[in-house]
Amino acid sequence: MIEVTPQEFDFIRASIKSAYPTFNVMPDQYSIRMWYRMLGDLDYKLCETALMELFATHTYPPQISEIREKCAEYTVPHLKDQGEAWGEVQKAISQYGYYRQEEALESLTPIVREAVKRLGFREICLDENQDAVRAHFFKIYSALAERKSNDAKLPPGILEAKNKYIAQITAQENTAIEQKQQEEAEEDRVCATPEYIDMLMREHGFKR
């Protein structure tokens, strides 16, 4: 994708001002820089088309978020709704069954596959309470779809920074969990020694 050049951004700014002459859009250099920073990664023709649609449907000047959202509508593949996604899962189960998990997962679209992995393919197949399983799947899928939709609207630099922070927090949480597990394992090991058992028996009067 070709990014918007400063000259092309001047045309974008001029078109917004022309479409909404009574509004004070990007009134100073600071706001102009911010708008360019937030829109500069977009393809010019894509941005222009999105603006034309917004001009035709919006009474008020579009905000940065609205422009990016409209551009994302043109470029991001359609995300299935909850019912369509669950139907895809049921089709995979019907076609591949419980024992061909890898093939079933491979047949799913990426976001549906991620939701199924989090819930567990075998659990979906074997759980007798399918209403509860479906409700849980809907919740997981909706969260994944919302995140994917939001990420598609972000400038690449901001998305990269966001993912970096998330990765750091996740790594810290995993380290804390591993440390706690190690401490619990060490505690269990100590409690299982003959010396510790002997001490407990003496404390409770079972042994002198």
Rank of each mutant, 00 (worst) to 15 (best):
N129L: 02
A145M: 03
A167N: 03
A176D: 10
D131H: 08
I166C: 03
A161W: 10
S94V: 02
Q172S: 06
A143E: 10
C71Q: 05
E73M: 02
D127K: 15
A132G: 08
C71E: 04
Y99E: 15
Y141M: 01
N129Q: 02
G157L: 13
N150G: 07
R122W: 04
K148S: 10
A132P: 07
K162D: 00
D81M: 06
C125K: 06
V112F: 03
D81W: 02
L79M: 11
K153A: 00
G120P: 05
A161F: 12
E88P: 06
E84C: 05
E103N: 14
E103S: 12
G87I: 00
E114Y: 00
G157V: 10
L105P: 07
I140F: 04
R100Y: 05
Q95L: 09
E173M: 09
I166M: 07
L144R: 12
H78P: 06
N150K: 08
Y165I: 13
T75P: 07
E73A: 02
K80R: 14
W86G: 03
R134T: 01
S107C: 11
C71G: 02
P156E: 08
E123D: 12
A152K: 11
A85W: 03
K148R: 14
G97D: 09
A145Q: 09
Y98M: 07
G87E: 00
K91S: 07
C125N: 07
A92K: 15
E106D: 14
E178A: 14
A171S: 13
V112Y: 01
G157Q: 13
A167D: 04
I111Q: 08
K148N: 13
Q90N: 05
G87N: 00
I177W: 09
K70Q: 08
V133S: 14
V112P: 01
R118Q: 14
A145T: 11
T175V: 05
R100M: 03
